[in-house]
Amino acid sequence: LGPLEPAPGEHKLQYNYCLWFAKKGCHRTSITQVKATEQEYGKSLHIVGRCASVEQWWSLYCHLIKPTALKPYRELHLFKSGIKPMWEDPGNAKGGKWVIKLRKNKIDRAWETVCMAMLGEQFLVGPEICGVVLCTRFPEDLLSVWNRTATDQASTARIRDTLRRILNLPPNTPMEYKPHCDSLKKS
């Protein structure tokens, strides 16, 4: 992919982003052949579009169907350019993710809100954010925010608190932090 620039008059984003789509579920099926599974998962990821400005983001977003219109076990990944949305990518390998389960009636708005917070640098954790992921399931969907360094407690706490605030989550909403190395060991 060639370089991407904001057009004249557009509002540049702090980072360029890539939107990916995958048909697989959040959990991988193969237990024994990690490498084969990694390749298989990589192949299931398709780039939908890219954006370097707010206007390019909306132009992309307005062409997408809403998360509630997606079938179960579909994934949307909005990641910084240069980071592939896989645990094994060097940008993610030492990182982890906050995962929130959301009812279908909340997911459209929540996905839009989390994407906007990332694009607008609302998490205030410098370069720590890698991307956000939506996994459609049944009856609830999963929304996750991936960061670079699972051991960076200040950043992970700030991401959690920002998520609670922007999504207006009740204080008792379960939120789980999963380091990717644990996910890799399990698979």
Binding site: Q14, V54, W58, S59, C62, T113, L119, G120, E121, Q122
Partner: peptide, 21 residues
């Protein structure tokens, strides 16, 4: 360097700008 920060209201305002279509 300076970070480019946009809040929700600002981003929503640009959703309907002619450049966003």
């Amino acid at each position: 360097g300076t970070r480019i920060i946009y809040d929700r209201a600002f981003l929503m305002n640009l959703k309907n700008s002619p450049l966003s279509r």
